[in-house]
């Protein structure tokens, strides 16, 4: 989407505020403090100091503080004992007729292989019977990264100088935020200055890590693994590359745009693949894709593409957390 030069885009990118000077009906008078107010303020402060903060002279306050500590301890002990008594009434772990071994889990174990086509029942459960929960989890990962981005991102260029007429709420020497250029200069003391041994070995090991991560993702329905653990491995490979080669080389192939596009494509594909049943009347949660022979890689319907989507989101999340905490940007 190209950026055009109309009022919406100027407001969107923060260059012009269309509401300045247009909101108030008339100018506000300057604030003058009346004489009686100062005396009232001092009286209020003295009253507060006497009744709430003065522990030495006020005997009622001392007693209250002591009783508060004792009451807190008694309350905690009571609560803990109630919870422990409740726990002792639970049935034995692994008993046959526990409420958890009901028909739902029996159905999953018996006809799991038949209905989902996955040899690994756990993957069949989280990506076929309960696919919406996994969708929510992937979204939670994405939201977490966006939250960290809002809090920890640093400005690219210098901080904007104060425009006339706009109040500045902090003095210049108290401002502790950094720009990205300053953060990069700060980061030089952390890097061990292009260690040649580490670079050679990382150049050999990072492809191995990626291939192994892809193997774990693709074999989610045959052996323990799947999207989450495979994505973590790929993220670890990216972190190793970043540590060995520095930020400039990593930005050649992984920028913020890459991150946005990968997450967008993965989550949208997941959403469309599993929510078509809303449009077809929600009668059966089946897909039209045939299940194939169990034990082959290309089998079990939609589980393989969904594993890949989840893996991509997890890998991007891991790398994004590390880069944001270290440098304040991608």
């Amino acid at each position: 989407m190209k950026r055009k030069n109309n009022a919406f885009f100027r407001w969107f990118f923060g260059e012009e505020d269309t509401l300045i000077g247009k909101v108030e009906m008339k100018a506000q008078p300057e604030y003058e403090q009346k004489e009686g107010e100062i005396r009232e303020l001092m009286e209020e402060r003295a009253q507060l100091r006497e009744q709430i903060y003065d522990v030495r002279d006020n005997t009622k306050l001392k007693l209250f503080h002591k009783m508060y500590n004792i009451a807190a301890v008694i309350f905690c002990i009571t609560l803990i004992s109630i919870l422990l008594v409740n726990v002792s009434w639970l049935p034995h772990y692994g008993d046959g007729d526990n409420p958890v071994n009901n028909e739902v889990s029996a159905r999953y174990i018996e006809s799991g292989l038949q209905e989902t086509g996955a040899v690994n029942i756990v993957t069949g459960m989280i990506l076929d019977y309960r696919a919406f929960d996994t969708f929510g989890e992937s979204n939670v990962l994405f939201i977490a990264t966006v939250t960290v981005l809002i809090l920890m991102r640093l400005d690219k260029e210098k901080k904007a100088p104060a425009k006339p007429g706009v109040e500045v709420y902090s003095k210049a020497e108290d401002d502790m935020t950094m720009t990205i250029a300053e953060a990069q200069a700060n980061d030089r003391i952390y890097e061990p200055k292009n260690d040649a041994i580490l670079q050679k070995v990382a150049g050999f090991l990072v492809p191995i890590i990626f291939i192994f991560g892809i193997y774990v993702v693709l074999n989610g329905h045959l052996s323990p693994g799947g999207g989450f653990s495979g994505g973590a491995i790929i993220g670890a490979g990216l972190i190793l590359y970043l540590n060995a080669f520095g930020f400039e080389k990593t930005e050649r192939f992984f920028t913020e745009k890459t991150y946005k596009w990968i997450c967008f494509v993965a989550l949208t594909f997941y959403c469309l693949a599993k929510s078509y049943s809303f449009f077809t009347g929600a009668n059966h949660l089946e897909s039209g894709i045939p299940l194939g022979t169990p034990g082959a890689i290309v089998s079990s319907g939609l589980i393989l593409p969904l594993n890949i989507c989840v893996g991509m989101v997890v890998a991007c999340t891991m790398y994004a957390f590390y880069a944001l905490f270290r440098k304040g940007g991608f």
Binding site: D195, I197, L198, V201, L205, I208
Partner: peptide, 16 residues
């Protein structure tokens, strides 16, 4: 194979 490549590099970094 992985450990024979990775473990000497770890000890190099710790020594550094």
């Amino acid at each position: 194979i992985f450990l024979w490549f990775a473990s000497p590099v770890s000890s190099h970094l710790i020594g550094r």
